[in-house]
């Protein structure tokens, strides 16, 4: 693919993203028209008297922003893990981060809640979110510890370890469900399905402050990820400090996904398929691939959120939608691309 076609593909991607953001702002249980919003805005009335504008500002905008930030963050984490572990299946989700986060959230729901000993608020995090964050970060650090041992584990083995940890967390979740009271189960299960249906700007601000610096750090590693494409030794011979790159990527990704999972629950497949889909358009150089994936990831989750609102009357949990779209799409990609190129 030539430079020009690639550039136009990137421009098209950005345009698509903007269109989806606009659609996400206007489409919902109640569709808003641009004319009505402008009219209400011009009237100068307070928000309580302008229903459309109120929905836009208090619900649609924060929700869209959360979808954007979460999509960007998860995709970038997926892209980084794929490069670091040289494996097409490496994502936060497959490494068990989401499952551990869910386990933390379940534990917090059981032992927190009304009168529980584990109830607290800290820096805008509830005990549920704090525990989800702590457990997902714990999972990544465990994998990093295995990766950085003296007898190094092969990337594919690490991935297997991640999947196993995910299974461990899943059985932990089952055990917690067994312990839980029936009325707690409803909240727990809803959390497990993921959702960006926030109201107000507090989660937007937390996510923005958490994800932005992580995204910048990861984007700055792009040329190092390129070097890893030929293996760790080749990269080290070229002057990349591979150990430092590993540490940085693991820490940053664990922090970022921890924040995301704690706020919106586990949302799978975005981090897996978006980088692969983008790679077929932009090629494999991370200096182009990563920013393009960032944009595409945000757009993708916006689209999923629109579907979440419109697919049925009422909400469909977004985690279900990403999996329902993502899994078949990934299978399609598998049949198209030669994944044998990857170190598996």
């Amino acid at each position: 693919m030539t430079r020009a076609t690639r550039a136009s593909a990137v421009v098209g991607l950005i345009a698509l993203c903007l269109a989806l953001v606009a659609a996400s702002l206007l489409i919902g249980t109640e569709n808003l028209s641009l004319g009505r919003i402008i009219a209400e805005w011009r009237s100068g009335e307070p928000l309580s008297k302008t229903p459309a504008l109120s929905i836009l500002i208090n619900q649609r905008l924060p929700r869209t922003l959360v979808a954007l930030i979460v999509g960007c963050g998860l995709t970038l984490a997926g892209c980084s893990f794929q490069a670091l572990l040289r494996n097409p299946l490496a994502t936060p989700y497959t490494l068990g981060i989401d499952s551990f986060g869910a386990f933390g959230a379940y534990a917090a729901t059981i032992y927190g809640g009304a009168g529980g000993w584990l109830t607290f608020q800290f820096l805008g995090f509830s005990h549920v979110q704090a525990l989800a964050f702590a457990f997902s970060a714990f999972d990544v650090l465990l994998i990093y510890a295995m990766a950085s041992r003296k007898t190094r584990m092969a990337p594919s083995v690490l991935l297997l370890a991640g999947v196993t940890l995910g299974l461990l967390a899943s059985s932990g979740i089952l055990f917690l469900r067994y312990l839980a009271r029936p009325e707690q189960l409803i909240n727990m299960d809803r959390w497990l399905m993921g959702g960006v249906d926030v109201i107000g700007y507090e989660p937007v601000i937390t996510l923005f402050l958490g994800v932005t610096p992580c995204a910048i750090i990861l984007l700055a590693q792009a040329s190092k990820f390129d070097q890893l494409g030929f293996g760790e030794e080749m990269a080290a011979g070229r002057g990349v400090n591979v150990n430092r790159l590993q540490l940085t990527t693991f820490l940053v990704c664990s922090f970022m996904t921890g924040i995301i999972v704690s706020k919106v629950g586990p949302i799978g497949f975005v981090g897996l398929i978006v980088p692969h889909a983008v790679r077929t358009v932009t090629g494999s150089r991370h200096r182009i691939l990563m920013p393009a994936s960032l944009v595409a990831g945000g757009a993708c989750l916006c689209l999923c959120d629109i579907l979440a609102r419109k697919l049925m009357t009422g909400e469909t949990p977004i985690g279900i939608i990403t999996s329902l779209i993502g899994a078949p799409f990934f299978l399609y990609l598998l049949t198209r691309r030669r994944f044998t190129d990857w170190e598996t």
Partner: peptide, 14 residues
């Protein structure tokens, strides 16, 4: 110093 390991294959198509 340039170093070339044995049998390196890229993960990405370039």
């Amino acid at each position: 110093l340039g170093f070339l390991p044995q049998m390196v294959n890229p993960v990405f198509s370039l």
